[in-house]
Each structure stands twice: as structure tokens, then as C-alpha cells.
């Protein structure tokens, strides 16, 4: 049997946010007309993410732009960009249709390399979780009060399970690609400062590496990547990862087979790291 390569582990994000180069001229022509330029949020290796607007000033959107890579052959580059934009959009549309919590797709231009999706008002899980863990440490809490974290872990497990249940694997499940939607939770509410940090609907984002698959192996690798992300980014939350798996196990028919498979994947991962 062919053993599938384990994807590289997600890197622990730098403590300092990367310096963002403000270069609006990078954007495709349609965004050069804007009176206020789209706001750069993150600059990844492959994509730039902006906050912008869709159709009307009062509708915010996330604009993901994949600029062409000068070092790639132009034809190959155009084909890759087109493929990635359409593939991410297709998976998002499918998820949304099946009730998996993801941003809605608003518009795209695969030739120009951009995708516009619903803006999720909230924050990525990585940041929220670190904030919560830091607060706890600073106030010297050792035991108890873990229901909030448990609840979040369970919501993550069932969101991932619902996605797997409709035949989608994410391909890059990290706590930076999970968001907490702040629906109706008012900013400045004193509750948001402590207990309610981990509140909000879990929304899956960044389907740039996602694919359609119902293979248990692929699903188990998704879980493994997420588990390792918790281990490296939030080691103090890792002991509760079992809650993710428990909720996952109840989320769709066949989830328990995936959990069995996860043990194999872990084993291979360990052997790998022993071989160094």
C-alpha cells in the first residue's frame, strides 16, 4: 500500500506580525478606481488578503488576491492561479450550500486572480485562544474554568466533522484558518474581556489547499495537522484536544473510522520524526 506523505507541519507563527508592504499598485485594475484603497490584512506566500467592499459601501468583503509570480512560466502561472481561485470558490460554494460554516462567495475573476468572499466579523482562533490562555496565566488560574475552552474545542470538532461529512478535506487546518464569528456580541461589552473571549460561531476559512475527498486517510491527515497545530501553537490547550476528537466522532457517520485511522497517521508521524 502506498503511504501518503504527511504534509509539512504548520510553522508556529512569528510573535511579531510580518511587516506588510503597502503597495496598492499590486492590485488588479478594477481595484485601482477605488477612492479608498482596499486595506491589506495579511500577506501570505501565495496570496494577499484585503478588507474591501462588495457592490455597496456598507457591505464589507474579504478580497483574496493571488498576484502572478514573476519566476513562474507565464502560461503555467496563469493556469495555476485560475485553478486555485476556482477551486477555492467551488469548495466554499459547496460548503455553504451544505450548511458548513464558511464565508459566502461574492465574486471572482480567475483571470485577474481575485476572489471576494463574505467578511467574517471576528478573529482567528489562534489569537483568541492565546488571549484566553494569557489571561488565565496572568490571573494565576491553574484548575477549573475550562468549560469555555472545552466548548470551543467541541465546536471546532463538529465544524470539521460537518465539512468532512460532505466530502471536503481542508488541507491546511490550523488555528489561523479557523475564525470565531462575533455575531451580535458587542465590542466593549465587559463580558468579552474574560469569560466570553472564546465565544462565537466557528467559521472555517482559507480553502486554498482544499479538495473533494471522502478518503479516511485524507480526513485523518486533516485532524493530525490540526492536532499538531495545537501542540506547537497552543501547547497549554493541547490536553483538551480530545474534546475536538470526541465532538468530531459524533459529527457524521463514519467519523469513528477516521479516528482509528488517525492513530496510524500519528504513528507514521512519530516514526518519521524518529528517523529525523
Amino acid at each position: 500500500m502506498e503511504i501518503q506523505a504527511i504534509p509539512p507541519l504548520p510553522q508556529a507563527p512569528a510573535v511579531e506580525p510580518p511587516v506588510l508592504s503597502e503597495s496598492p499598485s499590486l492590485l488588479p485594475p478594477v481595484f485601482q478606481n477605488d477612492s479608498s484603497a482596499p486595506k491589506l490584512i495579511t500577506q501570505g506566500a501565495e496570496a494577499l488578503l484585503y478588507r474591501s467592499t462588495y457592490l455597496l459601501p456598507e457591505i464589507p468583503c474579504a478580497l483574496k488576491y493571488r498576484p502572478s509570480k514573476p519566476y513562474r512560466h507565464p502560461i503555467l502561472d496563469a493556469r495555476l492561479t485560475k485553478h486555485r481561485i476556482l477551486s477555492e470558490a467551488r469548495v466554499l460554494v459547496k460548503c455553504r450550500k451544505e450548511g458548513v460554516p464558511v464565508p459566502a462567495v461574492y465574486a471572482l475573476d480567475e483571470k485577474e486572480g481575485w476572489l471576494m468572499v463574505e467578511w467574517i466579523e471576528g478573529e482567528v482562533v489562534r489569537i483568541k485562544l492565546n488571549e484566553w490562555l494569557r489571561n488565565r496565566k496572568e490571573s494565576g488560574i491553574q484548575e477549573g474554568g475550562e468549560e469555555h475552552l472545552k466548548g470551543l474545542m467541541r465546536r471546532i470538532g463538529s465544524a470539521v466533522g460537518r465539512m468532512h461529512g460532505i466530502g471536503i478535506v481542508h488541507g491546511d487546518l490550523t488555528t489561523s484558518n479557523l475564525m470565531l464569528r462575533l455575531n451580535g456580541i458587542s465590542i466593549g461589552d465587559e463580558a468579552t474581556t474574560d469569560d466570553r473571549i472564546l465565544d462565537g460561531e466557528v467559521v472555517l476559512i482559507d480553502f486554498g489547499l482544499a479538495s473533494q475527498s471522502t478518503a479516511d486517510e485524507d480526513r485523518a491527515v486533516d485532524l493530525y495537522v490540526l492536532e499538531r497545530a495545537f501542540g506547537s501553537t497552543h501547547p497549554r490547550a493541547e490536553p483538551l484536544f480530545s474534546e475536538v476528537l470526541d465532538a468530531y466522532g459524533q459529527s457524521f457517520k463514519g467519523a469513528n473510522i477516521v479516528l482509528k485511522k488517525l492513530e496510524d497517521v500519528r504513528m507514521r508521524g512519530r516514526k518519521r520524526s524518529m528517523l529525523g
Binding site: A89, V93, R96, K97
Partner: peptide, 15 residues
Amino acid sequence: EVQVLGAMALRGATN
């Protein structure tokens, strides 16, 4: 509404 917008954006693209 948003699902209709998604379907229009994709325009059945199978890529």
C-alpha cells in the same frame, strides 16, 4: 441570496 451570488460567481466552473 448569498448562495445565488456564489452560483453566479462560479457560473458552473468545473475548471
